[in-house]
């Protein structure tokens, strides 16, 4: 599913400009790194795409949906097509790994047998099969991150957004997670990863978009470079 941002500006009250005049196109099945320093607007951009935020100005279209025109009754169905890995994981501490993954599918009204088989499948994919009955507080940071990834990929979304998926993780775990994200992308899912881990960006070269103070600073795409508004 392709993503188009045209002239996106996001201003928070009272007068904090988080993003300013962003034009960005992400093709279906593309992998994109969103980089930039803390406060550059990466998380805001992801939240605009997941429709947690509405832009102050501009239009966002995901597939054939104009997010500004999306009715609240259509929002859940849109969000099912967008898997999000949150910076703080947002796992439910009272539920086991299995339940955390399963409840996404249950919310979609999928029958219990299918929920069970699909949840087990993704838990196995992220390498947590033996830990599926543990609760998040019993897991390490990297394992919790993998549960969050498993939950986001459970319903095979068309778009996958990951906000700092390797933040505070050791190099080995970060690489495992990157490989997982690349495998998700390999199945045709559009993946956007917000990160400031330069090592991973260099090691797994993909399209790179850099934000600086809420503005698009660099868009490195298949060898072409867009720097500070000029090609």
């Amino acid at each position: 599913m392709d993503i188009r941002l045209s002239g996106i500006t996001k201003v928070f009250e009272p007068d904090i400009v988080a993003l300013e005049d962003i034009y960005l196109s992400v093709d279906s099945g593309e992998f994109l790194y969103l980089v930039g320093t803390t406060g550059s607007g990466k998380t805001t951009l992801l939240r605009l795409i997941s429709r947690e935020y509405l832009p102050t100005r501009g239009q966002i279209t995901v597939g054939d949906r104009n997010l500004r025109k999306l009715r609240s009754s259509e929002l859940p169905y849109y969000r099912r097509e967008v898997g999000v890995v949150f910076q703080d994981f947002k796992l439910l501490p009272n539920l086991t790994v299995f339940e955390n993954v399963a409840f996404v599918l249950e919310a979609m009204g999928i029958p219990p047998k299918l929920v069970e088989s699909r949840s087990n499948e993704v838990i196995d994919q992220v390498g947590l099969w033996r830990r599926r009955f543990l609760k998040p507080p019993q897991l390490s940071g990297g394992e919790q991150q993998r549960v969050a990834i498993a939950r986001a990929m459970a319903n095979s979304p068309a778009v996958f957004l990951a906000d700092e998926p390797t933040g505070n993780l050791d190099l080995r775990t970060s690489e495992e997670i990157m490989r997982l994200l690349l495998s998700i992308n390999a199945s045709g899912t559009t993946v956007i990863v917000a990160t400031h881990d330069q090592y991973l960006v260099d090691a797994y070269r993909q399209r790179l978009v850099e934000l600086h103070n809420g503005r698009l600073k660099r868009d490195e795409r298949r060898g072409r470079y867009f720097v500070d508004g000029e090609l």
Partner: peptide, 16 residues
């Protein structure tokens, strides 16, 4: 609260 917010973010309908 937290659980409901996560449910909304992952696409649960308000009826569910």
């Amino acid at each position: 609260k937290e659980e409901i917010e996560v449910m909304l973010l992952i696409g649960a309908t308000s009826t569910y």
